[in-house]
């Protein structure tokens, strides 16, 4: 019953968001595009990193793969096929990275993803300079901001729906168990590596799609633009601010932070990086579980604790 109401509300909100750009100017639509893009990025990031607690710093690697694939293929293939190709490439890279790093302790995964974007950027640059002889490409696709926005909005809805479904599925339970204690999870019968790999690949594919869909906004694309590490950083902050283990957490973190960063970069372009860093440190310090958990934590003491003798619960 509750679920039905929630779905009706979500559908109404989606419809409202879909017609919103009809009443906005180009700047407003631009904001909506950026905001929706980050809602998807943060939600997709949290889909994997939230339950498993593997911090991925590779967001922009996949985002860039998506954008660059569109730049390379948009002239030769029909648009849906281009998106499909982008997905396939993102998925392949995710599987290679995941297979080689997810078996190991989380720290190796973080370190590897930290440099992945730089590695792919250098490889693409090397390929362009040595094989195709060009660096930088133009994208001529007949899309306006509103078309990109609608695609992103659909992707956002699909991503949230998918997250919701995974949360309720066996896979979701498996991931939360893995995030808590891999040894216990494995001894309960969970194929730990496969569960992590599946989610990492899924999350990476969605991130690739965001890059692919947003690419036409740039018109001119080169590796340094689409592999900008700030994108990984922003995605991470947004998901953490909202709370990476909640369905709506990343989206709720993404919207205010995106607007804040837009305002900051317009008004304090020189100090942007410093403010960003300080902000980020603050979030790790004061909201380690995200805003949603903080709000719940503030509410919880009001509820009565179970009337059990608790004197030994500290023993575990």
């Amino acid at each position: 019953m509750n679920t039905t109401v929630a779905f009706i509300l979500a559908a109404a909100a989606l419809a409202g968001l879909a017609i919103a750009p009809l009443f906005l100017n180009a700047y407003g639509i631009g904001l909506l595009v950026g905001m929706t893009g980050y809602v998807v990025l943060a939600s997709a990031w949290a889909m994997f990193s939230g339950p498993t607690r593997y911090v991925s710093l590779a967001t922009v690697a996949f985002f860039g793969i998506g954008a660059y694939t569109v730049a390379v293929l948009s002239e030769t293939l029909p648009y849906p096929l281009v998106l499909l190709c982008a997905c396939a490439i993102g998925l392949t890279v995710a599987l290679i990275v995941g297979l080689s790093t997810l078996r190991l302790a989380g720290i190796y995964f973080v370190i590897f993803t930290f440099g992945l974007a730089e590695l792919i950027r250098q490889l693409v640059t090397w390929y362009e300079v040595n094989v195709t002889g060009t660096l930088g490409r133009y994208i001529f696709l007949p899309f306006e901001g509103i078309h990109i926005y609608w695609q992103l909005l659909a992707l956002a809805a699909a991503t949230l729906l998918l997250s919701w479904w995974i949360n309720r599925s066996r896979l979701g339970l498996a991931l939360r168990a893995v995030g808590d204690d891999e040894v216990v999870a494995a001894h309960a019968g969970i194929n730990v590596s496969r569960a992590k790999l599946m989610l990492f690949a899924l999350s990476a594919t969605i991130i690739t799609l965001v890059g692919a869909i947003q690419a036409p906004r740039w018109v001119y694309v080169e590796p340094a633009i689409v592999f900008n590490p700030t994108i990984s950083f922003l995605t991470l902050i947004m998901a953490l601010l909202g709370g990476a283990t909640r369905l709506w957490g990343p989206a709720l973190g993404a919207i205010p932070l995106f607007l804040l960063f837009e305002w900051l970069s317009a008004n304090f372009p020189n100090y942007f990086s410093i403010i960003l860093g300080v902000f980020f440190i603050g979030i790790v310090f004061f909201l380690p579980q995200g805003v949603l958990a903080k709000i719940e934590g503030l509410r919880r003491p009001a509820r009565k604790a179970p009337p059990e003798n608790k004197e030994r619960s500290g023993a575990a």
Binding site: L173, A177, V184
Partner: peptide, 27 residues
């Protein structure tokens, strides 16, 4: 199936969910 020398509950899951993990992925 096994238990551990030092209890290892899965802290972010409820009591029932801890048991569900084995039901969902066991035999």
């Amino acid at each position: 199936a096994r238990t551990f020398q030092l209890v290892r509950p899965l802290p972010s899951l409820t009591v029932a969910e801890n048991v569900l993990v084995s039901l969902a992925f066991g035999r």
